[in-house]
Design a protein around this nucleic acid. Structure first.
Lengths: 158, 158
DNA sequence: GAGTTATTACTCGGATAATCGTTGTCCGAGTAGGATAGG
DNA sequence: CCTATCCTACTCGGACAACGATTATCCGAGTAATAACTC
């Protein structure tokens, strides 16, 4: 899985604490000591997916496009990894003896079905968890964490 | 995900119908019109993982190392893809303000926990399904499929 | 005819290239704030 | 002092390179069946 997924999720969580204030990719990258240009690239992808909005120029940056409760972890993963399943059925049965060209073996093949139902369970877990859930749970476990993050990302760079 | 996973699963299912008779990689590859040398490589990996056994020389080939009921789909996937999770937490929080070096953020970070529990659900699904299950369900849906496959793989090459 | 030996064809196994996707970097287009000059 | 214009610094956005993993291929080591040879 793409490394940027982790960065993107942390970035979204941080943006959820910013009360609509824009944060630049450089600032977010510095917060985790990451290559800023590459993080910028990931966030661009999230913009295209409609999860973030971007503003150019001074005081510009990224912010959440929707309420944190309307952004699931799955949304972020799908935006960066693509919507197709990790297990891609190449329909080898089509070339096997007795295989038919008019059958969609992605649905007929039992092996494909097994892999598919497993990925469905994975997706269900991620779809049930939103950025708002993460924000709430982190705040509950570490009270004041959101406040500290917001000030850290708002304070002018040294 | 590795392409060879699909081939390996089909191969294991076919071997489950062979009643202990060895089948060569070339024969299995021809059955699905696959590159035989590459399939051979995948099957070697399954041998190292203890899922298959191999025999050299004439009348040699691969056969299942255990009863089909003792081989889960997850076993095959893990053998080829590795045991580590697809989402690897790089513990970016360690470099963030307030991060501690003595904390294992793979367990403490809520994002990591979320991804981990999703992958756990995925694994659970695959672990619950064995090669024997697949064999039974295919035979039930397409009676005589096992018999046909066995004769196809036993018949001398043309 | 039976046993033993040498041959031979066949299979796995690992070492070796080619291809593709991910990772990382850079510079240009566009923007908004701020300085400046004029009224 | 207020306003309009110009300038400048800053940010995103997409194009461009480097790296690594997956995909694919080839040839050698080992093996067991087979054929030949001897008794």
């Amino acid at each position: 899985m793409n490394e940027g997924v982790e960065w993107a999720l942390h970035s979204c969580l941080n943006l959820a604490w910013m009360e609509g204030k824009a944060v630049t990719a450089t600032r977010l990258a510095a917060h985790y000591d990451l290559p800023s240009a590459y993080l910028n690239k990931q966030l661009q992808t999230l913009v295209k997916a409609g999860i973030l909005t971007s503003t150019s120029g001074p005081k510009g940056g990224f912010r959440l496009a929707r309420e944190p409760g309307e952004i699931s972890v799955l949304d972020v993963v799908v935006a960066l990894e693509g919507a197709e399943d990790a297990f891609r059925c190449e329909q080898v049965l089509r070339d096997a003896p007795g295989g038919r060209a008019d059958v969609d073996y992605r649905k007929a093949c039992l092996i494909s079905q097994t892999m598919r139902s497993a990925e469905l369970a994975w997706r269900r877990e991620l779809a049930a968890r939103t950025i708002a859930d993460l924000r709430r749970d982190v705040e509950q476990r570490h009270p004041g964490a959101g406040e500290r993050t917001r000030t850290a990302l708002t304070t002018p760079k040294s």
